[in-house]
Nucleic acid binder design. Structure first.
Lengths: 344, 344
DNA sequence: ATGGACGATAAAAACGTTTAACTTCGTTGT
DNA sequence: ACAACGAAGTTAAACGTTTTTATCGTCCAT
C-alpha cells in the first residue's frame, strides 16, 4: 500500500486535487460542505501532508536552524552544557508548528559565520537562532542584509534592531555589585565571558559603573575574560588570591566557572564565607548543590529558550523585530549572607 | 537572478538535463569529456544541488532524527546536560555527508515512542539515534519491524541485535568494585540510573556479582535507582549516611549525582576520604574540579557521539547492525587514594 | 550490404504539492 | 432579456530532481 496523497483523496471524493488541496488548507474558495467531505476522506485514508512536495513547490524548508557553538571534540572541558536545555526548549516551542529544529554544530565564530552565509544564500532554513552575539556581529549583518528571519540569544550593540532574548546583564551586575558593596566588600573580582561577546561588554561596563557609584577604584587585575569553563574559574581564583590585596568576592558569569572557582578555593585552602565569597549566574539551578550553596542569579534556561522558539516563529510570520526583544531579569537567590566572618 | 538549476547548466552546455544530472553524480553512462564540460559549467554558474527536488523524487529526507529525552520545561534540575556534547558530536560526524541532524526533544519515554512511530511511518527521517534504552525496548522493536536504520546510545538485552554504542558498564562496575574492596571498603553504595534503563540493570547485576566475588553481603538499602540529578545524589547520601551501618563508598553513575553527593556530605558534615569516598562516572571531565577531586571513570563524550554519527551513516548505507556495535571502556582516573584515613 | 550490439545522449514521466488561469453555472442589476 | 458578476470547481503548469525508455549514430560480424 502506498502512502495516500491528495490524489488519493481526489479519487476517493471525485473532486480535483486542486480542490482537495484548497480544502485542506481552509481556503475560502471551497464550500464548507465540500471541505467536510474532504476532511472525512482524508481521515479515512489516513492522509498526511508530504512536506517534500510542499517544500519543492513553495521553496519553504520548514526548518529552523539552531547554530550551536561548542568547542571541538578534542576540547573536553565542561562548556556550553546549557545548550541541551536551550535546544529542547526551542524544540518544544516549535512543537505545534510544522517547523523542525535543524542542528548546526560549529566550532568557532568563523564557522558559524560561514554556515549562516550558506543557510541564507541557499535557503537551507526559514529561520535562524544564534547565540554568543558580539557587540558588532557580522552574522547579524549578513542575515539582515538578506532580510532573513532570525533571533539571537544575546544582544548586540552596533547592529540595527533585531529580535533577541537575553538576561538583563546590566541590571544583574548592578544589583549584584551594590549588594556586595553593602556587605562590606571592597575588592570584587569579575570573572567575565570573552571580551568580544556582547554580554561580556555589558557586564564589564556595568561593573565599572557600579565601582564608580560605590566610589571604589578599578583594578584590572580583578577582571578576567575567557571561555567560561571550570578551568577558567579555577585559574583565576588561583592567580587573584595570590595578589597582595586579593578579592573578597568573585562574581562568576556562569555555574561552570563558579564550580571552578570553588576548586581554586580548595586548592588554596580558602574558606567560602571567611576568606572570600562566590556569587554566580546560574541557569541550570545547580549551584544550590555547591558546598556551601552560594548566592546566585537564577534564570531558568527554559524561559529564554521557549521565548527564542516563539520569537522565531513570529519573526518568520513577518512580525517586526522591534516587537520581539526581551531582557529577562534573573531572580536573586540568597543562599549565603555573603558578609565575611572575620578571621580570628 | 534565480538560483541556477540543472536546467541552467543544460542550457549553458547545450546538453539535456538528464545528461547533466547523470554527469553530476558520476554516472558511467556519460563520457568523461562531457562530464568535464558539465562540471565546468556548474562551477561557473555557481550551481548547488536543490535537495527539495531530490527529496521529492527519491523519497529520501537526508535527515537523521536525534531523539533527546529531557525533562519538561518546569523541571529545572540539572539533568541530561551531556546531550549538548552528544548532539554536537553527532552533527560533526555527519558534516561531510548530505545528512543533517533534526532534533526531536521529548519529555518522557512514551513521547519518544510516539515520535519514533511517526518518524518511521511517515518517513520523516532516514535514520534515528536514540538513547536511554531499556532492557526490552519497544522503540527498538518498532524500528526493527519497519527495517528502519537506527543506532542506540546504550545496549538492550532482549531485543534482536542492533547497532549500538555504549560505555562498558559491566566492566566499569566490576573494576570499580574490586578496587574499592581492595582498599578496605565493605559497605559500598550504588547510586544507579532508573531501574528500567538497560545500563541500570547492567550496572546493578555487575554490582551484585562483584559483591559475591568479594564475599560481601548484598544490602538493598545501599542501592538507589533514580533520575541522575544532583538532588538524587544528595538525598541518597542523606538517607544512607543515617543508616546504623553507613556506606564508606558511593559509586555515582554520573557527574551530576556525584555533585549532589558532595552536597549531602557537606550537609551531614562528612569529610571525603575520612568518612566515606565518592567515585563516579564522568563524561564531561568535570569531577576534577570537585573539592576534593574524585576518582572517576572518564569517557569523553566526544567518542561515543562521533561513533553514533558514523554508525548511523553506515547503517543507512545498508551495513548490517552486527558490525556496528561498540562498548567503550572509560579510563580510570585516580584522583584520590580512596582508602579511608581512620578517624582519631 | 544488412542486421545487431553498443555507447552516448535525449525525451519524457514521475515524485506531491500549490496556484494562476480558466470554466461553469446560478444570481443579480438594469 | 441580457450583460456582468461571484461562487465553486477544474485544468494545467510549475517547483528540481532522478530514472526509465527511446533515439541516433557507429562499429562490427556476417
Amino acid at each position: 500500500m502506498q502512502r495516500p496523497t491528495i490524489k488519493t483523496i481526489a479519487q476517493e471524493t471525485g473532486l480535483s486535487i486542486a480542490t482537495v488541496s484548497k480544502a485542506l488548507k481552509h481556503s475560502p474558495q471551497v464550500r464548507p460542505e465540500t471541505r467536510a467531505i474532504v476532511i472525512e476522506a482524508a481521515e479515512r485514508v489516513g492522509y498526511e501532508l508530504n512536506m517534500h512536495g510542499v517544500q519543492l513547490r513553495t521553496g519553504k524548508t520548514y526548518q529552523v536552524a539552531a547554530i550551536m557553538t561548542a568547542p571541538g571534540p578534542k576540547q573536553n572541558e565542561w562548556e556550553g552544557v546549557e545548550y541541551a536545555q536551550l535546544l529542547s526548549g526551542i524544540s518544544w516551542a516549535l512543537e505545534d508548528s510544522p517547523y523542525r529544529v535543524s542542528l548546526y554544530a560549529v566550532r568557532n565564530f568563523e564557522e558559524s559565520q560561514a554556515i549562516i552565509k550558506q543557510i541564507v544564500s541557499l535557503k537551507k532554513a526559514d529561520g535562524i537562532i544564534i547565540s554568543g552575539t558580539r557587540a558588532d556581529d557580522p552574522r547579524i549583518r549578513t542575515m539582515q542584509a538578506a532580510d532573513f528571519p532570525f533571533v539571537t540569544y544575546g544582544t548586540s550593540v552596533h547592529n540595527a534592531p533585531h529580535a533577541y532574548v537575553d538576561a538583563d546583564n546590566e541590571q544583574m551586575i548592578r544589583v549584584s555589585m551594590a549588594r556586595l558593596v553593602e556587605r562590606g566588600h571592597r575588592r570584587i573580582a569579575l570573572l567575565n565571558p570573552l571580551s568580544d561577546l556582547s554580554y561580556g561588554i555589558t557586564r564589564f561596563e556595568s561593573y565599572r559603573r557600579a565601582l564608580e557609584v560605590a566610589g571604589l577604584p578599578f583594578d584590572p587585575a580583578l577582571v578576567a575574560h575567557g571561555r567560561l569553563t571550570p578551568a577558567f574559574g579555577r585559574e583565576n581564583v588561583l592567580t587573584m588570591s595570590d595578589l597582595s590585596n586579593p578579592p573578597t568576592a568573585y562574581i562568576c558569569a556562569n555555574e561552570a566557572s563558579a564550580l571552578g572557582a570553588f576548586s581554586g578555593f580548595h586548592e588554596r585552602g580558602l574558606v567560602h564565607g571567611r576568606d572570600a565569597v562566590i556569587n554566580a549566574t546560574d541557569d541550570l539551578n545547580v549551584s544550590q548543590y555547591f558546598a556551601p550553596p552560594i548566592t546566585t542569579y537564577y534564570l531558568p534556561i527554559s524561559e529564554p529558550s521557549s521565548l527564542l522558539g516563539t520569537y522565531i516563529l513570529r519573526r518568520m510570520e513577518g512580525e517586526p523585530p522591534e516587537a520581539l526583544q526581551t531582557l529577562l531579569m534573573p531572580k536573586l537567590i540568597e543562599r549565603c549572607d555573603d558578609r565575611l566572618t572575620p578571621k580570628r
